[in-house]
Every structure is written in structure tokens, then in C-alpha cells.
Design a protein around this nucleic acid. Structure first.
Ligand SMILES: [Zn+2]
Ligand SMILES: [Zn+2]
Ligand SMILES: [Zn+2]
Ligand SMILES: [Zn+2]
Lengths: 416, 416
DNA sequence: ATTTGTTCAAATTGTTCA
DNA sequence: TGAACAATTTGAACAAAT
């Protein structure tokens, strides 16, 4: 009101700000206006704000293309430097069109720099990969099994358990029962996860080896199937499925490669060198040596690591499945730059499964064994992370040209 | 309303506007219309707007060719000055055809002037050359090496940069480590760049001199290869590759000739007078005296300059490579008319490499030496720019007739 | 040989999509 | 928001008629 006299300089700025505020703070206002917006440059029907002013698509593109080029690149065609710019005339004088853009307050500093463009591109690619993991977001009920919402009873928050040895036997069977129940659930979920994801490759009735020609095939077939199954396994695990979606994506992205190592250990038979998902009699088997497609080094490391791990846990798949759950809840083993939304929840979930493992080890191998085994398990875990990183590097190196052939989900998993 | 008296111009304009509006404000209308447009001049099927009216191709060409010629060049064939102009009759009376063009509102001021035509032609030629440098635009990843995106840690802002592998002592070795790391990267990139561009001329197994007949050959063979390698070198340098494309092109266009001087210094052996890219045992050598093809004067200057520079930097190629990087980020040493889009970024990149050079000189020759050497380096640089300009003049002079024989990329580089 | 007509190349501009 | 695509509009170059 009192700014009437300051139109030329001040008002443009404040009007611009006003626009901004209105357009961003009040969605309905903006939407209502949408229908009859007109471009401040050429008066054509406009689509919304571009570079801080309401413009049509073409003026938006024109500005983006020309605002950063040298001012003296254009010359007014009429020599007046004041050509009228309308829908009809906007093509006639580039100089005046651009001048009007600046006069009307289109901001060239909003045009993305190369740097920003690259960042954005990267982000888009990331998102594309995350979206490939959208099965993570689909509701568990879509898995056509009744999802058991029941979190496993953590034996952690036990006023009882702390008195483990002190308090006597009456509370002990209760704890064991709970443990067995938890373990049963976990085994059950894994089984379901396997069943729910069947190979698209025509099965075979009798045991049958399938040879892999190159790394892409390894990744797109057995590893992809394993990934689907593992993700389903996690989705069937309420502690995981109840996490914030961003966290689920992040945890999978960062840990699944390691998980795949443990899964390999579940599937591989060291003696025969055959890789086969247990309890899937009609599915193909693969040669463990297909891992050579990553690199010979990785293959030998994986075999060696698997042998040791199998020995350590007496080839008890339940332990491996627990380790898988523990791994998937890991954060920060590698540097996990983006922070988790609910990192505490993730941490406690992991603790719960560590606790279950601890108790199971003591139950299975005798009291006190867990504490003896944990250091080895931890060491094995470190090794698994190292191999996962190496495997990713192998993939990155080998598929730099052919990354497109990877199914999108696997891109998310195996590329950095 | 008050413009009644100006019928002839205004009315055509408003009619035109009507056309325009209809055709542009309604996409479907326009598209449907495009099929059966008819020329306002001869009623033949038309293609779209030409000089502001819908015309056929031939009337468009006719108008372009004749509208700017003297009006009285033509006379009406029938003397009526009102011949009917149709598809069949349009050829009969040029006078009336042209008259109808003006009557219908074709605008002769939309025909490009000679000046504009020349500008456009120049632009096309420029673009053709730029496209010859399209290797600058191709993504670095297409170079089939993993592009290391890692900018060199400027020792300028030494705050973070997690001590990569050295958990060692204090700050000093960390800085040195970073320096060594940067230098290693640079040498590595140069090496890769050389490897990635191999001569198309059949190599030789044993050292073998290749004689140059004339300047064109010099430019098209060894200089072209050197150019390709240097451009690749820059592309492998993230600080360069992340610049705005326009800037990359501009920097190369303006600085590459100077860079080629430093590259010559890397390749030449003053004592033997042989020019040979280091570490390419199977490639031809050339006589340094091939520079006489530019001019004797330039040859002597180059040899003298190279000798001094080699002496100054103890023939340390790493220093020369650093100088090359510093040069490519130069702006305004010569008058660089068009302003860079991201000139600040360019400036800081250059500073980073100057910094690296400074530290390297102190490291290699002893603390405090850098400040003693820099004036000489700066003087040498001035000389290099002077020679580059002279070389360009030599080329322009000598190839004025035969410029077509130059490979396009070299045209961009050596023709001002 | 000139004029006319057609086809082509190129830049610019506009639109759609994610 | 930009990328990628499609359309428009210009002159050049060539082919065809006068
Ligand atoms: Zn507009
Ligand atoms: Zn103008
Ligand atoms: Zn016509
Ligand atoms: Zn006539």
C-alpha cells in the first residue's frame, strides 16, 4: 500500500516473494488459479511457476536455454530493444524476449548448474534403483499369506532373564519355550519366503545343473531369485516390515550383498560344489564355481568362508538364518552415510535377534558356548562384509558397459 | 478504431494474428490444419508459416529470392498489375506474384540479411567444429575406464578429507600424502589418456621416424593425436569434466594451442631433436624440426622455450602436466570475449592445481623454491601464449586455401 | 543460363514425460 | 525442474523447368 511509489525496484522483489509465498504456502490457491494462469512473458496460457514466475512451457524452455548464454549473443531485431512479446510475436526477437524474462524477474540462478544436474541425475538413478525394490513397499498382505504381525517375544527385556542363573528353573522353561517359538517362526517365514518366489525359469523334475555363462546371468537368475526370497523373508519379519520405508530400503541396499553371502552358505554343498536352495526339489541347481564369474579370488574366499562358517555352526541353517536377520539390521558396519529414520528401532531389533541367537547357541551347544562362538561369528561377519564389498567392485568393474542387462532390482543390490 | 487510416498494414496484421492465435492456442486445431494448409499466394498445398504467412515451398523460395530486389525489376506481363496467381499461373507474372506476397503480408524484414546469413554460416561452421570436439561431450564413462570422480583434495582447504589409508602421524605427512596422491592421480590420468588414443597410422615395431611433408600433415597426424590425448586427459580430470559444456569447449578452444606447446616440451628431446610421446614404444617418432612447417621463427622459439622450460623444471614431466592443467583452466590470458558460465568454478579449479604445483615444487626442490621458480614459470607461460598466437597465425596464413584438408577437430584448435 | 521448385540440413522452438 | 522428443522455420543445395 505504501509501497506504491517504489514500484520499479522494490515491488518486483516483493511481488516475487509474495508469489512464492502464496504459491508454496497455499496449495489450494495455486490449484484454483491453475486453470487461467497466463505467462508473464508472452501472455500464453501458463502452467505454473518457472524460475520464480508464472510462465508457459515454451518461455520456461527459452529461458533455461538462453539465460546463461552471453547477453550480447542476441540483438534486438527492430533496434528498439522494446519489442512487444506475445504468443504471436515471441519468436520474432530473442533479445527482447530474454530481456523481458529478466525484467519480469525470472531468476537465472535457479537454472541448475552442471554440478546440480549431475547430482540430480545421480539421485534419479538412485531412486530408480530403490523403486526397483518396491516389493519392499508392497504390503505384506499382498504376499498372499496371512502376515504374522506378531513380533518375536524378545528374551531381552527380561527382568527374569537377568537372573538367568540366579533365579531358578521355573522361569527357565518359559524362556526356552519362547525361544523355540521364535525359532519356529523364523524357520517358518524363511520357508514361506522361498515358496512365494519361484523361479521363472522352467523347473526341472529331476535334479539338474544349470550353467551360467557370465556374471550378468548369475546375477539375473540365481542371485535375483535369492534376493527376492530374502526380501520376502524380511517382509515376513514384523520387526523389519514395521520399519520406516526409507529404513527398509536403506538396510536392504547396504546389507543385502552380505546377506547373499550367508544365503550362499545355506545353499552350497561344499563337498559337491553344488548350489541349491533347500526344499525346492524341482528347481535347478547351480555350480558354486559360478562365483568365479565375479572373480577367482572371490570364489576361493567364499568357499573358504562358507566352509569355516558351516563348521562353526555345525551347518545349522537356523543359525545362518538368524545371522541373516542380524545382518539385515546392521547399520554402520560399512559407512552408511544416510542416517536411518528410526535407528534406535533398528538397533533394538538387531539386539533382539542377537539375543535369540545367543540363547539358541547356548541351548544347542551347551551353556556358555555362545560366548565362545560369538568372536568367531563376529570375525566371520567382518569377512562377509569384506567379500561383499569385493563382490560389488567385481560387478561394477565387469558390468560397466552392460549394466543395462541387469534386472533393475539387482542393480540396486550389486552396484555400489 | 482510430487506426482506420492505416488499413493496409494493420488489417493484415490483425488477420495474421487471427491465424496465429488459432493455430497456436489450440494444438489439435493446428495439427488437423497442417494436413490441408493452402498457400495464401498460389493456393497450392502449403507447409506452414513462412515469413509470417502460410505458403507453399515455392512461394517461400520465390519471396526469399525476390523480395529484397528492386521493386521495379519486374513488370506485369499483362499490364493489369492484377494477374491471378494460382498453382498453374504463378510463373507467368513475377510482378504480380511478388505484389501478392506483399499484399498478403509476407514480411521481407524476416528475410535474413547478408550479415545475418554470414553470422549463421559462421555459427554452423563453429558448431561443426565443436561437434568435432564432441569427444568432450561424451560421458567419461564411455572411455571404458572407470572415471574416477574424485576431485583432487585441494591442499588449500585442509579440514576434512578423511585420512585415506594413513592413520599415521600428524598433519604434515597427511598433507604430503595428499599431494602425492594427487600427483599420482594426475600422472595416472595422463597415462590413461595416452593409452586410450592410439595412432591410426600403422605403428612400427622398432623406433622409426616419420617425415612430415607439410603443415597439414603435421596438424592432422601428430598434433591431432596429441590433441585427442590431451582432451581425454582433461576429460579424465573431474575438475574439468564437471564444468558446463560450453565452458569446456571454450577453454579447449582458447587454451589448447598453448597446451600443445607444453605437450611438445614433454615429447621433445632437445639433444636429438626427436619428438616422441613417452611410453609409446610402438609409435612413430617425428622430427622436432617439423615445426618449421609453421615457420622457422616458431621452430626456433619453441626449441629455445622448451630448452629453458625443461631446464627450469629439471625435465620433470609431472610439472609439465601440472602446467598443462593450469593452462587449460586459464581464462582471459588472451582476451576471451565470451564469458564463461561458471567462471568462478574454473578459477578455483585452476587455483587448486596451482596450489598442487606450488607444493610439489617445494617438496621436490626444497622449501621456498616454489616462490623462486614461479616468476620464471609465469614468464614461460607468457611466452607460450605468444607462440601459440603466432602458430595460429602461421596456420591461418598457410592453410587459407587448403583448410578443408584439416580434420575438423584441428580446425577448431588451430584456426582462431 | 536463368528461374523455379524440391529436398535437405540446421537451428530454434515447443511439448511431453518422469 | 530438465531430458528427450517432436515440430517449426529458416537458408542451402540440388534438380527441373523455362
Ligand atoms: Zn510464455
Ligand atoms: Zn527487440
Ligand atoms: Zn504458393
Ligand atoms: Zn501481372
Amino acid at each position: 500500500m505504501q509501497s506504491d511509489r517504489r514500484i520499479s525496484t522494490i515491488s518486483t522483489t516483493s511481488v516475487r516473494k509474495e508469489h512464492r509465498k502464496r504459491s508454496y504456502s497455499n496449495g489450494t490457491f495455486r490449484r484454483r488459479d491453475r486453470q487461467d494462469l497466463i505467462c508473464v512473458i508472452c501472455l500464453a496460457p501458463a502452467i505454473g511457476y518457472n524460475f520464480d514466475q508464472i510462465t508457459c512451457e515454451s518461455c520456461k524452455a527459452f529461458f533455461r536455454r538462453n539465460a546463461l548464454t552471453n547477453a550480447d549473443k542476441f540483438k534486438c531485431r527492430t533496434g528498439t530493444n522494446d519489442c512487444m512479446i506475445t504468443l504471436d510475436t515471441r519468436k520474432r526477437c530473442k533479445y527482447c524476449r530474454l530481456k523481458k524474462c529478466f525484467d519480469k524477474g525470472l531468476r537465472k540462478d535457479w537454472i541448475m548448474s552442471e554440478e546440480e544436474k549431475r547430482t540430480k541425475k545421480q539421485k534419479i538413478e538412485d531412486n530408480r534403483r530403490l523403486r526397483a525394490m518396491s516389493i519392499l513397499s508392497q504390503s505384506a498382505s499382498s504376499l498372499s499369506v496371512a502376515p504374522d504381525d506378531q513380533m518375536l517375544p524378545s528374551t531381552l527385556n527380561r527382568s527374569d532373564d537377568s537372573c538367568d542363573s540366579t533365579t531358578s528353573n521355573e522361569c527357565k522353561p518359559s524362556t526356552d519355550d519362547r525361544l523355540v517359538h521364535s525359532l519356529t517362526k523364523i524357520a517358518e517365514r524363511y520357508r514361506k519366503a522361498v515358496q512365494l518366489n519361484v523361479s521363472v525359469i522352467k523347473g526341472c523334475t529331476s535334479p539338474c545343473l544349470r550353467y551360467m555363462d557370465d556374471l550378468i546371468d548369475v546375477l539375473n537368475e540365481p542371485t535375483h531369485l535369492a534376493t527376492l526370497r530374502l526380501i520376502t523373508f524380511f517382509k515376513l519379519t514384523p520387526e523389519f516390515n514395521s520399519l520406516h520405508e526409507d529404513d527398509r530400503l536403506l538396510l536392504v541396499k547396504h546389507n543385502l550383498m552380505v546377506v547373499l553371502g550367508y544365503h550362499f552358505c545355506i545353499c552350497v554343498d561344499i563337498n559337491t560344489g553344488i548350489y541349491h536352495e533347500p526344499d525346492t526339489p524341482n528347481e535347478y541347481s547351480y555350480e558354486a564355481s559360478a562365483l568365479r564369474k565375479y572373480s577367482d579370488s572371490l570364489y576361493y574366499q567364499m568357499i573358504d568362508w562358507s566352509r569355516k562358517l558351516k563348521h562353526l555352526c555345525a551347518d545349522d541353517h537356523l543359525i545362518l538364518k538368524l545371522l541373516i536377520l542380524i545382518v539385515i539390521f546392521s547399520k554402520g558396519v560399512e559407512h552408511m552415510e544416510p542416517v536411518l529414520v528410526e535407528s534406535t528401532k533398528v538397533f533394538y531389533s538387531q539386539c533382539a535377534f542377537v539375543d535369540i541367537l545367543w540363547n539358541y547357541l547356548n541351548l544347542r551347544f551347551g551353556d556358555g558356548q555362545a560366548s565362545l562362538m560369538f568372536p568367531h561369528i563376529a570375525f566371520s561377519l567382518m569377512k562377509a562384509y569384506a567379500m561383499a564389498r569385493e563382490a560389488k567392485e567385481d560387478v561394477t568393474r565387469q558390468t560397466s558397459e552392460t549394466a543395462d542387462e541387469l534386472v533393475p532390482l539387482m542393480k540396486s543390490v550389486v552396484l555400489s
